[in-house]
């Protein structure tokens, strides 16, 4: 039987309360929401927090709304809620593409958007998606709020810029006319990605005004293919340019070999998935 080691458990009743609890218990405290990454790690003793601060009751963090020209997704929004959100899908179909392939329907009922980002698993899907979307992450601490670009949120595997005592409260995605898509290759339903690519294109006057390309599980710095983005910006959204961007993305990512495949296969996949994501996004243009 896998059971976590003992810990103290406190249920937060507000964001302010959660922050004061995090301050009270110090660096050995962890926030728990869906718990679908943290609890298995605690069972395996890969994580052993002295205290868990449960934020599941914080309804203020569980909303999806449009505010100030941005889609605002509360950190506690469950994957299933983002997947069924019409407003999210209307503005950013990439969010539904990704949510449809994250774990399975039962896990999606429990796992949260904010939890996935804070876990910072290199194979987690939303990191690349929000990096491609150039989302802003709203972080609150006892001293107030700060906003971190999604691309600057991740320090490395399982590591983010969140300081002790800080809480991710929301993800803001600026609403600009765009087309987007996320494509993933996995070995079976609900599995982690062998590789996946996110593409977001802002098209204006027949050229790519701005572009975001994200890569999941493929060793891309900050989860993005910045050099491929540079290649596409300000040019026409042509198949030829997409193919070159895909080649650049494949050349610049740094996948590692594991049970899901060797490096050369994953590098090939990176190029193929970037091309598919770009074509898929443009195919959605009205």
């Amino acid at each position: 039987m896998q059971v976590p080691a003992s810990f103290q458990y406190r249920k937060a009743t507000s964001v302010a309360h959660a922050l004061s609890l995090l301050a009270e218990y110090g660096p050995e405290a962890r926030v728990v929401a869906g718990g679908h990454s943290l609890l298995p790690m605690m069972k395996l003793r890969l994580a052993h927090p002295e205290a868990l601060v449960d934020i599941n009751d914080l309804a203020e963090l569980a909303e999806i709304r449009v505010e100030g020209g941005a889609l605002v997704i509360g950190a506690l929004v469950r994957h299933a809620e983002l997947l069924s959100s019409a407003v999210a899908g209307r503005h950013f179909p990439i969010l539904h593409d990704a949510e449809r392939v994250i774990a399975d329907p039962i896990v999606r009922n429990r796992g949260t958007v904010g939890g996935s980002l804070c876990q910072a698993d290199p194979s987690e899907d939303l990191s690349a998606v929000f990096a491609a979307l150039r989302a802003e992450l709203v972080v609150r601490g006892l001293d107030g709020e700060r906003v971190v670009a999604a691309r600057d949120f991740f320090v490395g595997p399982y590591e983010t810029v969140l300081a002790d005592g800080e809480l991710l409260v929301a993800i803001r995605v600026p609403i600009r006319p765009s087309v987007s898509a996320y494509v993933k290759v996995d070995r079976r339903a609900g599995d982690w990605a062998v590789g996946a690519a996110a593409a977001v294109l802002e098209l204006a006057g027949g050229v790519v005004a701005e572009v975001g390309i994200g890569l999941t599980a493929l060793g891309a710095r900050k989860f993005v293919a910045a050099e491929a983005e540079d290649h596409l910006r300000a040019g026409p959204p042509s198949g030829e340019r997409f193919a070159e961007a895909a080649r650049i993305a494949a050349a610049h990512c740094a996948p590692t070999a594991d049970q899901r495949g060797p490096v050369d296969y994953k590098r090939h996949l990176a190029g193929e998935l970037v091309a598919r994501a770009l074509r898929g996004a443009v195919g959605r243009a009205a």
Partner: peptide, 11 residues
């Protein structure tokens, strides 16, 4: 529906 092996009883 949730997977009860990954939910704490206190939750």
């Amino acid at each position: 529906p949730v997977k009860s092996c990954t939910v704490l009883a206190v939750m």
